[in-house]
Design a protein around this nucleic acid. Structure first.
Lengths: 333, 333
DNA sequence: TCTTCTTATGGTAAGCTTACCACATGGGCA
DNA sequence: TGCCCATGTGGTAAGCTTACCATAAGAAGA
């Protein structure tokens, strides 16, 4: 016998009446309400949301599928998503893809089975994941651009951020700049290179940045920095396309006893959250991570509610440049 | 008409046959299987897990309710939970309590409605949340001790960690040590003080550490450090009971131009994950955060599966002391 | 007085899948 | 030949809640 049924029996009413008390809708007399509430209390009744979900096809749950929650940037995004979802009565299920398309697709299928109401996805490739494309579930793409598809998306302005970071370096007098960035088919990695190139162009320079494509991880930063140090002429500045790469760069420089910023300037995309930084040091382009999660969630929930899809929204959030102590005028050779 | 029904119709079979194909159990002829699979493919059929969940009372979902995912320590725990859960076919819903009992209880009720199979909880108080106590849902308490209750729990060895960190300071010659810690009713905060006191006792010293109770946040570290600097005699070492406090301590010291470790030694509980540290500097007690999440999850899933509750398990994981550059012999006065 | 509305309560079925039982066929074996 | 078993397929109901419709009494209005 279902739980609501037992409560109803104890209160001497029909299940529907208990439902009315719990959900506070429809007519219930004061006396009946009292009895029902007493029964609920005595039995510690908590309604089973599976019933209504089955009917309404709404689970009040969103899926957040991202690369790795362990990166503070994503942690902050996730917190923004969680807060925004919570405010509107939803919960979130988190999945880490580690940039694997397979893991991504596994998650999407599994979460589809669970009937989540919508997806927030940081796609592991530059295409709409096929599970989403094939079905009519609302979703919002986070952080990255998607090829050949009109989709709702929220991301930071990588081009402008990279442009301004690079301009900062150029203004200081740097001409030999190495960029260490992520995969070529991730729009953020690509756009950050584009922004940097634009800065060179706009400055009327004939030089171009030296580009190294890798992954958004520390190892990439470390490895390419070692290579960059062997170049002739040696670049005077390194542009790390995300925070993890930036840290890898620093490790390599420290190991090679290269002083920052005296012997090498370093800029990075994505800050580390203030609470975990002992000594803010990097000159960075800061994306509003929390805001990104929040806006994406609100957009998704709006979609879910008025599934009237009048065009798609592409929200590009501004990034802020913060100049700190990792950049300086290049040393005279 | 239900989805499985439509697929069945298209394949010219009964829904149960489709179920057999999907779940690969029971007898299905080759030819029938082929037809059903074709129909599934054509219709992009993904089974609705709500139906079975309603029957089996299993949702394959766990709830992870912690203070704040934004703290890298919790992020790492969460990642351990996610990986372990995933390996065993479960997903996780994350909730942040911000140490508010109210938010915690809201989550627990809401998630109970969703019929999660079990809870991993970092309790906001030192009692079993009442929602869990009243119901017979499996749960595991993370990180903190619970008063007057036999519950499954997983935590780091705060006492031993604090003991050894303090012993390290005592061995260096420090005698005036200030501890800045969390709330008195959080067992970790309390135990870390206990461990420190034990180190003084074991060393046969008559001095005792000077204790400051606050919150596990940066502000607490900052504020109390300022106070500590006014003490006479001024302590020569500060013991920060978690990473955020440690960073607050550093900010205050930097602001007051106190050199670490020359003028002040600092130790902290909880490390920052390697990938986000430019320059590992703190002498710390490192809890195995990932392992903690993993073990708690496995314990919970074991409970869920053989709900035979033969006694409760209290898993205390060892912490590792890493000596770095934030500690040194105290300056001669 | 009759109709209509408000208040109060309940029965039925739907939503999706699968456990359980039932049925049917054909082959193997005694 | 008769029985049993393996194979193959389907009907029914359950699991929990609530939308919808139905019923009923009393009050208000015509």
């Amino acid at each position: 016998m279902s739980a609501i049924h037992e409560v109803a029996k104890r209160a001497g009413v029909a299940p529907i009446t208990v439902s009315r008390v719990v959900n506070n809708n429809g007519y219930v007399s004061k006396e009946t309400r009292r009895r029902v509430e007493a029964a609920i209390e005595e039995m510690n009744y908590i309604p089973n949301a599976l019933g209504p979900s089955l009917r309404s096809k709404r689970t009040q749950t969103l899926a957040l599928v991202l690369s790795d929650i362990t990166n503070p940037f994503w942690t902050t995004v996730a917190r923004g998503v969680e807060d925004a979802a919570n405010l509107r009565g939803h919960h979130i299920i988190i999945g880490n893809t580690d940039e694997s398309i397979e893991k991504q697709d596994d998650y999407l299928v599994f979460l589809s089975k669970k009937q989540v109401d919508g997806f927030l996805v940081v796609p592991a490739s530059s295409y709409v994941p096929k599970t989403l494309a094939k079905r009519r579930v609302p979703f919002v793409i986070l952080d990255r651009k998607i090829r050949d598809a009109q989709v709702d998306s929220v991301r930071g302005d990588s081009i402008s951020g990279a442009y301004r970071l690079t301009k900062h370096l150029l203004d200081l007098g740097h001409r030999h700049i190495s960029i260490i960035t992520g995969r070529q088919d991730h729009s953020t990695a690509y756009d950050r290179v584009q922004g940097a190139v634009q800065a060179f162009e706009q400055a009327g320079l004939h030089e171009r940045p030296q580009v190294n494509w890798g992954e958004y991880d520390q190892e990439t930063g470390y490895r390419f920095t070692k290579q960059v140090l062997e170049l002739t002429p040696r670049p005077t500045a390194i542009f790390a396309a995300n925070n993890f790469i930036g840290i890898g760069v620093m490790h390599a420089l420290r190991e090679s006893k290269i002083l920052v910023p005296q012997a090498m300037s370093v800029v990075a995309f994505d800050d580390l959250p203030a609470p975990i930084m002992v000594d803010p040091f990097f000159t960075v382009a800061v994306q509003p991570a929390y805001e990104m999660g929040k806006q994406a969630t609100n957009l998704l929930l709006d979609r879910i509610n008025d599934n009237g899809s009048e065009g798609y929204q592409e929200i590009v959030l501004p990034v802020e440049i913060i100049v700190r102590n990792s950049t300086a005028v290049p040393a005279k050779p």
